[in-house]
Design a binder for these strands. Structure first.
Length: 120
DNA sequence: GCTTTGACGTATG
DNA sequence: TCATACGCCAAAG
């Protein structure tokens, strides 16, 4: 039995699924990519109520400042940290340096022709 | 229906 | 860096 997924939510899931491994994105960025600018909260809601069976890289979604949104010490918090580190993302004190792992870093590198693309 | 509650964001001091 | 205020909106009570 397939759960009916609201189109808006579906776009959110699509946007999340599009985050490359080893990279992270903020709730706001995901919302924007899903065609819902300014609705970051909706992304959080969509994540919390992710239908079973949907295998999303939810751990690549962080707050705008790079911090993990889940409660420190919670199960999800540890799980997210673990998954991120497993992908080579630096997590220190529940935070990720967005400047280095965020998607816009890719854009900067492309535009400014910075360091050689030694991507994963 | 109205109020509260969020896996949030931006602006401001 | 921390705190407060406000915007946002779906779901739960």
């Amino acid at each position: 039995m397939r759960q009916r997924i609201e189109p808006r939510f579906r776009q959110i899931y699509v946007a999340i699924a599009a985050i490359p491994p080893g990279r992270v994105a903020s709730y706001g960025q995901i919302a924007a990519r899903a065609g819902l600018p300014g609705r970051a909260r909706l992304v959080g809601k969509a994540l919390r109520e992710t239908p079973d069976g949907l295998d999303l890289p939810w751990h690549r979604v962080l707050r705008a400042n790079g911090s993990i949104a889940l409660a420190r010490g919670s199960r999800g918090f540890r799980e997210q940290s673990r998954r991120l580190r497993a992908e080579g993302v630096e997590v220190r004190d529940g935070r990720v340096p967005m400047a280095a792992f965020g998607l816009d870093h890719d854009l900067d590198r492309a535009l400014w022709c910075l360091d050689p693309p030694r991507d994963a």
